[in-house]
């Protein structure tokens, strides 16, 4: 299977989407600039990569400022990245798993479509410096969240409808109950990111009218718990046969807890601890992809037998979900900076 998650000409597509959905927003006051060093270096690296990889990009993209003027927009774009990564994971994973399920129900195509759109929206958002929500992105993200909710219902029904109902074997081998949550989370991050681009009362970024940092931290921690639950279920099914299988059920939950701790009790030390653990979770997601690729090789016939083992082996596309959630957590941490006051 070869999927083309990126439109062939991203800049043109983005301009097109912009022209379709642009909403004019009054320019905001100059914002306080509180910059996170890691975020900056990430941004720089990304920009360098873009410039290196796409010499043909329009100047607007090539010469975009390396440092955003506003914390809210920075956080929003970090969330776009998180959301996009999650959506990409969902796109590839649901393609594999729903192919395995022979697309028996036409609804099984839905997550492919919404996650593809979400990837597009997130790419768009990542390169968008404006301090305003964007209708296309907003609608897409909302759609993703709804897809996640409906998908979860479908999956729960799928487990319960098999003979034996909600018994372990059905949770192990029927539609994974936790999987659609990834697109729900992706959507939530996206919706939150759109809210962040707008100034809240007192110049503080808000989401759903609440303090952006804490709200986002809570959403992230919840998402982390869900993602961990899913990993636990499937790694339990795999009997934790490789000690590395314990990593995603230890580091990510710790990072979720530390993030909540930082959000509730505040303090630079707690934020530092949370930040470190979240970066460890980012690494967990990346390493997991390689572990799963190795897991496919360990199946009978290895990668040569990819037609079977991509479906039966450990799912290669799922571990980046941790990276996505952790990136959102890092964005939340940025927003929490200065919340102690």
């Amino acid at each position: 299977m070869s999927f083309q998650p990126l439109p062939a000409r991203p800049e043109r597509t983005l301009r097109l989407l912009d022209s379709l959905f642009r909403r004019n927003k009054p320019a905001a006051d100059p914002a306080r600039i509180a910059l996170d060093r890691l975020g900056r270096s990430f941004e720089r690296a990304r920009a360098t990569a873009i410039v290196a990889a796409r010499p043909g990009l329009p100047d607007a993209l090539r010469h975009q400022p390396l440092v955003s003027p506003r914390k809210g927009v920075d956080a929003a774009r970090a969330l776009n990245r998180a959301s996009g990564l999650l959506a990409f994971s969902v796109l590839t994973d649901s393609a594999l798993e729903h192919y395995r399920g022979a697309f028996r129900n036409k609804a099984m195509f839905t997550p492919l479509a919404t996650s593809a759109l979400t990837v597009a929206a997130s790419l768009h958002g990542t390169t968008d410096q404006r301090e305003s929500a964007h209708l296309f992105r907003d609608v897409t993200y909302a759609l993703a969240a709804v897809t996640g909710l409906v998908g979860t219902a479908f999956h729960v029904f799928n487990v319960g409808s098999r003979v034996g109902g909600f018994r372990w074997v059905n949770f192990f081998y029927r539609a994974p109950v936790g999987a659609p949550m990834a697109i729900l989370i992706s959507g939530l991050f996206g919706v939150a990111s759109e809210r962040l681009r707008r100034e809240g009362p007192g110049g503080r970024p808000t989401v759903f009218g609440l303090g952006a940092g804490r709200t986002l931290a809570t959403i992230t921690a919840g998402s982390m718990a869900g993602t961990v639950g899913e990993a636990w279920l499937l790694h339990f099914r795999g009997n934790f046969q490789n000690p590395a299988m314990y990593i995603p059920v230890t580091i990510p939950p710790a990072s979720g807890a530390l993030l909540m701790d930082a959000a509730i009790r505040g303090g630079e030390k707690r934020r530092t601890a949370a930040r470190a653990s979240l970066w460890a979770t980012v690494a967990t997601g990346i390493a997991g992809t390689f572990f799963h690729a190795y897991g496919v090789q360990r199946m009978m016939g290895g990668w040569r037998n990819w037609k079977q083992n991509l479906l039966d082996g450990p799912p290669v596309p799922t571990p980046p979900a941790f990276t996505g959630v952790a990136l959102a957590g890092l964005a939340a941490l940025d927003l929490l900076e200065g919340d102690d006051a």
Binding site: G101, A102, R162, Y173, M300, R304, Q308, D312
Partner: peptide, 14 residues
């Protein structure tokens, strides 16, 4: 069927 076995296991699955 070796090394490749089967993936889809339920009723009506091919």
């Amino acid at each position: 069927a070796s090394p490749r076995g089967y993936v889809r296991m339920g009723f009506g699955m091919r």
